[in-house]
């Protein structure tokens, strides 16, 4: 039955080559931790993606409870953390995953750097990877404000002050992030929108480019 459905679709769209290309490509020995234990350093990229998937899924569940306004943001997080079944676990995964994804990405970047894998012909993939890094930091910064407790509030205030000190464009960056005269209701809705829509959208596009390029060029050879 399932095979019939698959064949019916495949006849029309020729989908087999797409997934066979992903499934069948050969993975060389020098990146395989089953052959060389030290090759675990090549796992950091995959683990970054794994944690990113966890972040997306846990974040989706968090938005089922989170209310992005200054009266209810804290209360909704408090409710989620202490009253909702497994709410503390899901929020914990998102909170600690945010740190872990930075750690994994940092290690992945160092692996690529020290194995010289960013060299020709993979320059573009390195640049895209660095952009992903900056997006992740942006996600960390915007997500930090959302629980709307004192720690979140004052860290964001300092962050916006730092951004303001950039010459010429600083005041505009401040206005863009803050949305008003003070860090307040509009800042929270903006940070929420940036954290949940803008940055993840950019992240997914860059990840697609990152993976497309690695498939096209293959992983770098042994040293």
């Amino acid at each position: 039955m399932l095979k019939g459905v698959y064949n019916w679709i495949d006849e029309r769209l020729d989908i087999t080559p797409m997934w066979r290309d992903v499934a069948d490509h050969e993975v060389p020995e020098h990146v395989n931790p089953a052959h060389h234990f030290s090759a675990f350093v090549y796992c950091f990229g995959g683990l970054t993606f794994f944690i990113t998937v966890i972040q997306i899924l846990s974040g989706m569940f968090l938005t089922m409870y989170f209310v992005p306004d200054i009266i209810n943001a804290y209360k909704s997080v408090d409710y989620l953390q202490h009253k909702v079944a497994f709410g503390g676990i899901v929020r914990g995964m998102h909170h600690w995953g945010a740190s872990l994804v930075i750690v994994m990405m940092f290690l992945h970047t160092l692996r690529v750097f020290f194995t010289g894998s960013y060299k020709a012909p993979r320059e573009m993939n390195w640049v895209v990877g660095m952009l992903i890094f900056f997006i992740m930091l942006g996600l960390g910064f915007t997500g930090y404000l959302l629980p709307w407790d004192n720690k979140a509030y004052f860290a964001t205030k300092v962050g916006i002050q730092i951004a303001e000190s950039v010459p010429y464009i600083g005041v505009y960056i401040k206005e863009l992030m803050q949305g008003g005269e003070i860090v307040g209701a509009e800042t929270l809705t903006r940070f929420f929108a940036i954290h949940v829509f803008f940055l993840p959208g950019a992240l997914l596009a860059l990840l697609a480019a990152h993976f497309f390029m690695i498939r096209k060029q293959g992983i770098s050879g042994p040293l």
């Binding site: 408090d78 953390q81 914990g92 872990l100 407790d149 720690k151 979140a152």
Partner: peptide
């Protein structure tokens, strides 16, 4: 990761003032 998550709940202070 899950052990960490369960052992150490995500921090939450008091509402922003």
């Amino acid at each position: 990761f899950l052990v960490l998550t369960i052992a150490e709940p995500a921090p939450l202070g008091y509402p922003a003032d």
